[in-house]
Design a binder for these strands. Structure first.
Lengths: 152, 152
DNA sequence: TTGTAATTAATGTATTAACATTTAATTTTG
DNA sequence: CAAAATTAAATGTTAATACATTAATTACAA
């Protein structure tokens, strides 16, 4: 369904406006789909992203600030997200030796296991998307990077 | 800045995953920019979108449900958004004659004026984006529509 | 017609987000 | 070195979001 049909707007002022609206709409759409996917696992998308960042460390510790820098939504509060994951016993958290202001965060085996489980579902998602073809996806990625660059 | 640099992730599992993350990130980025733009006018992006929908009616009334169908984020509560705009005296609200469950919402002159004012700033935004070129933007819009279609 | 289902909007509520502020630790500077 | 500035994380607070539920009205079916 085209963006025109999705939001029942027959025409747009220009192609720029349409692209802006289309990007916001498509972003929202993906977020909603993924949130629905993760809900049965008792985790939010942002919490999932933190887990994925921790997993990417391959056992190494990472500070709360570094987590923030790697997050999709920089505005959200990594401290509280880590707190939620800690409460679920998916991560551990210890004061950093070298800089006692910082906190070292690690993913626990339970966290890795949950991540793997969810990623199976995400892979199905990815499989559907791959129908678009690699060239198209590469082009989409390039256009998105250019888009952000244009309004920086 | 490429998405890799933005979130400090050196590589992605595959192009699909990268596209998903890039879309979410770019959507967030635009939303944050536009929210910052609207903040001085005392209005949120969602409220602005409702105003724009009402303006698109060119004087005709529209129900709360119809507003929801036209919104970018279907999950948000159009009823409360209209309430906020009503409190700011930017819209009026009367019970529909034909169907007394429904409520007719109109934009008031003050609402139109505010909209015009904000759109001046948005146009500058659009001007920057237009540097990408119309062909690129059209292609982006097509890819986004295809992307959503692939995971429907 | 009359009870049942469906629709429209509003409201209740728990969680989350967006900031600002605070606390503790470290770094810099005079 | 001591005071001031900076940094990291946590916490406080207000508003917004995501749903579920409710209340009123309309449509429909027996």
């Amino acid at each position: 369904m085209s963006i025109s049909d999705e939001i029942k707007q027959s025409s747009f002022k220009n192609e720029e406006t349409k692209a802006v609206i289309n990007l916001i709409f498509t972003g929202n759409y993906i977020v909603q789909r993924q949130q629905a996917l993760m809900k049965p696992f008792g985790i939010t998308m942002q919490q999932f992203n933190v887990l994925r960042i921790l997993q990417g460390q391959k056992g190494q510790a990472i500070s709360v600030l570094s987590i923030t820098e790697r997050m999709l939504d920089k505005m959200s509060n990594a401290s509280r997200l880590v707190d939620k994951l800690f409460a679920k016993k998916l991560v551990s958290r210890v004061q950093c030796e070298k800089d006692r202001r910082a906190v070292d965060v690690y993913i626990l085996p339970a966290g890795s296991a949950l991540l793997t489980q969810i990623e199976v579902h995400l892979d199905e998602f990815g499989k559907q998307i791959s129908q678009l073809g690699e060239e198209n996806l590469t082009q989409l990625n390039e256009l998105l990077d250019q888009f952000r660059a244009s309004i920086s």
